[in-house]
Computed example of a mutant assay.
Amino acid sequence: MTGELPEIELEDQGAKGRYVLRGPDGAEAEMTFTRVGEKKIIIDHTGVPDAFRGQGAGLRLVARAVEDARAAGKTIIPLCPFAAAQFRRHKEWADVLSQ
């Protein structure tokens, strides 16, 4: 898959959910999360198939979660190793990092 990435979709299933990018070939890049109470979410997993590699898909998914958490006054626990690495790289996200 090359070119511009599709829009990120949010699938909200109550206590759990995911952000997903769907490619025209059916490939899906996803970042799953779990809600912890009213003010925290845990990023559980980020999965980026080969069709999306090298296009910044994983970073876009985590950045969207950061934007949404910030807008909702929530904090994030990045259990997923990829998400945790992105939080270390992006110090500007410290306001939504759960302590």
Rank of each mutant, 00 (worst) to 15 (best):
G26K: 11
E9N: 04
E67A: 09
R60D: 01
G14A: 09
Q86M: 14
R35L: 11
L61A: 05
D12G: 07
M1P: 09
E30Q: 15
F52G: 09
E4C: 02
T46Q: 07
R53A: 15
R88N: 13
F87Q: 12
T46L: 08
G58C: 01
M31L: 15
G17E: 15
A69R: 07
H90P: 08
Q86Y: 11
V66Q: 10
E92T: 09
I77W: 06
G3S: 05
L21F: 03
M1T: 14
T46W: 01
L59W: 13
I41F: 07
A29I: 10
S98R: 03
K16I: 09
A71Y: 13
E9L: 07
P6W: 01
D95H: 07
A94Y: 01
L21I: 00
H45T: 01
L10G: 00
P49E: 02
E9T: 02
E67N: 03
R22H: 15
Q13R: 15
E67Q: 07
P6F: 00
V62T: 14
D50N: 02
F82P: 04
D25G: 09
T75M: 11
M1F: 08
G73I: 04
G3A: 04
A27N: 11
R70A: 10
G73A: 02
K39D: 14
E7M: 07
